[in-house]
Simulated scan of single mutants.
Amino acid sequence: MSIVLFDLFGVIALPQRPGTMARMAARCHTPVDAFTEAYWTCRPPYDSAQHTATEYWTAVLRRLSRPSDADTIEELRLADIDSWSRVDAHMVAYARSLREHARVALLSNIPSDHADAFLATQPWLRDLDHIAFSGKIKAAKPDPAAFHHCLAALRALPADVLFVDDRVENVRAAQALGMHGHLFTGLGELTAAVDTWLPSRTDI
């Protein structure tokens, strides 16, 4: 059966909660721009489980020349998790409805502790055919290893998969492996793309 492989954040889950970077930067007594640069620069090893949450936040704080005490790290960690906790209810319903016509899976760049929190509050994830979180599989998009993990877990060929992501570099990485790709810009465009890819699918 055909497989629709979804990204999470920016597709099914909403972007980071507005104002979070400013609040975390204020907690660190540092400018928002500097905090944001450190936050994202240090992120890849955290996403792919090469760094723990403590190691990640220690690296961020050191980059900002700020003290990395345990209380500050935990406060930032929890604020960060909360900031990525919202989902688009329409996209959740759409993804779940697709399971009548295709297998549905998820591949997300998300640290392990974030993944645990997301699973605890979003039980619909367990309805999917496979969930791959970078912090659990130790590989993050656009690394081909992340896509190969999903193919192996689903026992699928690349041509069986339509990969949906809001980042062009991730879509191109999937396409380079032989998957079909769709750059997500909204539910309407996605529905049209899926209808074309699954021509026998009835309207849902």
Rank of each mutant, 00 (worst) to 15 (best):
M1F: 03
V4F: 07
L5G: 06
F6I: 06
D7F: 03
D7G: 01
L8E: 03
F9C: 11
V11H: 04
V11T: 06
V11R: 00
P15R: 13
Q16K: 06
R17V: 13
P18N: 11
R23E: 15
M24F: 13
A26G: 04
R27I: 10
R27G: 07
H29V: 07
P31R: 13
D33N: 02
A34T: 09
F35R: 03
T36H: 01
T36V: 12
T36N: 04
E37M: 05
A38W: 02
A38L: 02
A38N: 03
W40N: 15
W40M: 15
T41C: 02
C42H: 04
C42L: 13
R43H: 11
P45G: 15
Y46W: 14
D47V: 07
D47K: 08
S48W: 01
A49C: 09
Q50W: 05
H51M: 14
T54Q: 07
T54W: 01
E55V: 03
W57G: 00
T58V: 05
T58Q: 02
T58F: 00
V60F: 02
R62D: 09
R63F: 00
R63E: 07
R66E: 03
R66S: 03
P67G: 05
D71C: 03
T72G: 00
T72W: 01
T72A: 03
L76F: 10
R77S: 06
L78K: 02
L78P: 01
S83R: 05
S85G: 04
S85P: 00
M91Q: 05
Y94H: 07
R96T: 15
R96G: 10
S97W: 13
L98I: 04
L98H: 06
E100V: 06
A102G: 03
V104Y: 01
V104D: 10
V104W: 00
L107H: 02
S108M: 11
A115P: 06
D116G: 11
D116F: 14
A117G: 02
F118T: 06
F118I: 07
L119D: 11
L119G: 06
T121G: 14
Q122H: 14
W124A: 08
R126E: 15
D127C: 05
D127F: 14
L128M: 08
D129P: 09
I131N: 01
A132V: 13
F133L: 11
I137R: 00
I137S: 04
A139D: 11
A140N: 04
K141W: 04
P142R: 08
D143Q: 12
P144G: 15
P144A: 15
A145C: 09
H148A: 10
H149Q: 14
C150S: 10
C150V: 13
A152C: 12
A152V: 09
A153T: 06
A153E: 06
A153G: 03
R155C: 08
A156T: 02
A156H: 02
L162N: 08
F163C: 08
D165M: 09
D165T: 10
V168R: 14
V168K: 08
E169V: 12
N170E: 05
V171Q: 02
A173M: 15
A173H: 08
G178C: 13
G178S: 11
M179F: 05
L183F: 12
T191W: 01
A193V: 11
W197M: 14
W197H: 09
S200K: 14
R201T: 12
T202Y: 13
T202E: 14
I204C: 13
I204Y: 10
